[in-house]
């Protein structure tokens, strides 16, 4: 509580809309206890967009679900705090909300669009009925209000309301369904939207359309965005800040340009070097050796040390804290000063 209060008032930044402290999520399985989210802390400020990047199994989707208390059976938040600041300035403890309160919190305050949103729509209901159901389940709005809002939002995501509202999901393309989901997520005017892999499985031109829609929505409406993705280019496009996750922990956070041009964690560096730009010369790309660790028994010390080219004896012993490595830039690496991005051109086009 005190830690959170300090951070909300320090360095003149507006108070965060969402503040997560020392969050721990476990899956209790027959094989053992999976430490899916470990000691995660971050702030989401009003109007900002944070990209949570990492590979499959790093805990990023679990973190997203935990923020809305939507974890599946067998998973539990075992420690930590999630504080949410409402528009009226009142701060609520998300983990203390009762069933009715959490139901209102979802969609009204914080909406989430899941990965595979294409399957999240009910196939036997017209889009209009789903919009109405969603609105009525989470807030007290009249039919006309829902209609008016739905039409406005659909136009904002570049869909024709008349056509789309009367359609069944199967009558829409993947990109259109994804835009419907985005419009739906904004229906109750939430302050936060969590998008899990918003463009995965969409064609490039459709992906581009979604990116432009999200960008223009952020200009027109007032909401903060947390998006979860394995796709670095998407983070480069849409994020103000980037947080890298590895083995359940946030291991680096910084401004998007800082992270891409001056990464200070060997894992972030490895990811960036694995994904070269499209246009221009042929750059050297490299992979990260080894495989992500088992989260039932994560490696001692820094969980990345078995794969890390910078690792030394200390790394296997001592878990690195998030060091301040620059302005609003933190990295959980003992040897962050040695980590430096250099791109090698292999061959030019001529």
């Amino acid at each position: 509580m005190t830690a959170w209060q300090r951070s909300s008032t320090s360095n003149g930044n507006p108070a965060p809309v969402l503040s997560v402290r020392n969050l721990e999520v476990r899956y209790f399985t027959r094989a053992g206890t999976v430490q899916a989210v470990r000691d995660v802390s971050f702030d989401l400020r009003p109007g900002e967009s944070i990209a949570l990047i990492g590979e499959s199994g790093c805990g990023k989707t679990t973190l997203g679900l935990a923020l809305l208390r939507l974890l599946p059976k067998g998973a539990r938040i075992v420690d930590g705090e999630i504080r949410y600041r409402r528009r009226d300035g009142q701060v609520i403890d998300v983990l203390q909300l009762d069933q009715e309160e959490i139901r209102r919190f979802r969609w009204q305050e914080c909406a989430m669009v899941f990965q595979g949103a294409l399957n999240a729509l009910n196939p036997v209901l017209r889009i209009w009925d789903q919009m109405l159901d969603t609105a009525r389940a989470h807030a007290a709005l009249s039919r006309d209000e829902v209609r008016e809002r739905s039409e406005r939002l659909l136009r904002m995501v570049q869909l024709e309301p008349e056509r789309v509202l009367n359609a069944y999901p199967h009558e829409l393309s993947g990109g259109m369904r994804q835009r419907v989901m985005i419009a739906m997520s904004l229906l109750l005017d939430p302050q936060i939207i969590i998008y899990d892999e918003p463009t995965t499985a969409l064609d490039i031109l459709t992906q581009r359309a979604i990116i432009e829609v999200l960008r223009s929505l952020r200009e027109q409406l007032d909401f903060s965005m947390l998006f979860i993705s394995h796709d670095l280019p998407l983070a480069a496009e849409l994020a103000d800040r980037v947080a890298t996750m590895y083995a359940g922990k946030i291991i680096e956070v910084g401004d998007v340009r800082e992270i891409f041009y001056n990464p200070r964690h060997p894992y972030t560096l490895g990811l960036i070097k694995a994904v070269p730009p499209i246009v221009g010369e042929l750059y050297d790309i490299s992979s990260i050796p080894g495989t992500p660790p088992n989260l039932i028994e994560p490696p001692p010390g820094c969980s990345f040390h078995p794969r890390c080219p910078y690792a030394r004896e200390r790394c296997a012993r001592e878990m690195p804290p998030l060091y301040e490595v620059g302005a609003l830039h933190t990295s959980a690496c003992h040897y962050w000063q040695e980590v430096k991005l250099e791109r090698q051109v292999v061959e030019t086009g001529d």
């Binding site: 490039i204 031109l205 992906q207 581009r208 990116i211 796709d231 670095l232 280019p233 998407l234 480069a236 496009e237 998007v256 340009r257 891409f260 960036i272 994904v275 070269p276 730009p277 499209i278 246009v279």
Partner: peptide, 13 residues
């Protein structure tokens, strides 16, 4: 296609 693909570089993209 080439214009639409996001690049892993915030300024470039």
């Amino acid at each position: 296609l080439l214009a639409a693909i996001p690049e892993p570089d915030p300024d470039l993209t």
